[in-house]
Design a protein around this nucleic acid. Structure first.
Lengths: 212, 212
DNA sequence: TAGATTGTTAATCGATTAACAATC
DNA sequence: TAGATTGTTAATCGATTAACAATC
């Protein structure tokens, strides 16, 4: 179960739910492959790993797929997270509609200086000194980190000490996963620099580029 | 030149600049490897691809590395971008300090409804009807997209029509690169769902997890 | 010199794909 | 039946790593 595979499964799931809501009943591996940008063979392989099978002629039954994907990916589990760092990015995330749509809820924010946080939402924002207590009390497993670069490493350390199991990190530092805690880094600046380079390079050497 | 390699090169560059500013003169492949989380062999391989060489005993000279990396990655090129969609995430990005630190500048924002944009910055926000004109006039190559899911596909289409070469997409839809235009998707919800799964899975099957 | 590190080759590894028999 | 699609195996591909000779 590597990250890429899981991301594909999540994409299948989203897509299938959409198809279902549009009234589709079945789907072929090449439809799915086209839609998420992989080969039909890989789609079939992924499904076979999940012991999902289709019909030799009629493709896959969407309901069955969705059901099994929910089973594997864990549908209605509690998905509560805390947000550490309520600056511009942080508060934007507090209002991010997509989270609730995916069943994810930011239950509390923490900031070094909660007074200064412009918080138009109902989510409470506490001083970061209460972090450990809150996390323990509410059995929080996952945190979103949106603090400045300087504080990121310390915050991550504290979160791991507090027993958190997963961190989604927006600070522009590459934090490393440990056995106790899995960290996903979203490095916006890096993505954009990468894009600049890919574009420049594609212009110089039209043939040699392999996006994604 | 695949994406992973470019990301590593960007990370080397950042790290080396930091080391340099701390007064370091030289560095070994295993220092760099540890720092960015890859094997020393890969570091040496990457450098050898760039025809960078070190000293059999004394490691690599930081100045030489930085110089060559700037050469390859294109140091002081103009890095102007436009922002399409000035909602919560969009305006947060307008104020994102890390961009200017990396020499990236958001020169203009566009929104369907510029009146409603809370814009505490000097960056002008225009109506999206002016997008094509602005982009042509200022020779903009790259756009950051932070519009709602529903509009993302249309906006991407318009941007490609307008001749943009690269898009960094924050809308929760997977947009696909074409020959004309490279698209990097940053799907925050997906990253977080992924994290939830990885954490759950790691708990269930401690041995079988491979983060990142 | 002895020890350490580079540079590079060959081996490994894992993921993806081609291809095709099975079969609806 | 003829045609299309699955399910799976073996081949391919590319990236990473192990290992070691070269050498400072």
């Amino acid at each position: 179960m590597n990250k890429e595979l899981v991301l594909r499964l999540l994409k299948y799931k989203r897509l299938l739910q959409q198809l279902k809501s549009l009234g589709f009943i079945k789907v072929f591996s090449n439809n799915l492959g086209d839609a998420i940008g992989v080969s039909p063979a890989l789609v079939r392989k992924d499904f076979s790993v999940l012991s999902l099978s289709g019909n030799k002629r009629g493709g896959y039954h969407i309901d069955t797929l969705v059901e099994r994907l929910n089973e594997v990916l864990g549908k209605n589990e509690k998905q509560d997270v805390v947000l550490v760092g309520c600056g511009k990015i942080g508060t934007a995330l507090m209002q991010y509609r997509e989270f609730e749509r995916q069943g994810i809820r930011i239950v509390a924010g923490f900031d070094r200086d909660p007074q200064n946080v412009e918080n138009p939402t109902k989510t409470p924002v506490f001083t970061d000194r209460q972090l450990e207590e809150y996390v323990a009390k509410h059995d929080i497993r996952i945190a979103v980190v949106a603090v400045p670069e300087e504080s990121a490493a310390d915050v991550a350390e504290r979160l791991q000490q507090a027993g958190l199991k997963g961190i989604l990190n927006f600070a522009p530092v590459e934090l490393k996963s440990s056995d106790q805690c899995i960290i996903n880094n979203v490095n916006i600046g890096l993505e954009l620099e990468n894009l600049f380079f890919m574009v420049k390079y594609a212009q110089e050497q039209p043939a040699a580029v392999a996006p994604e």
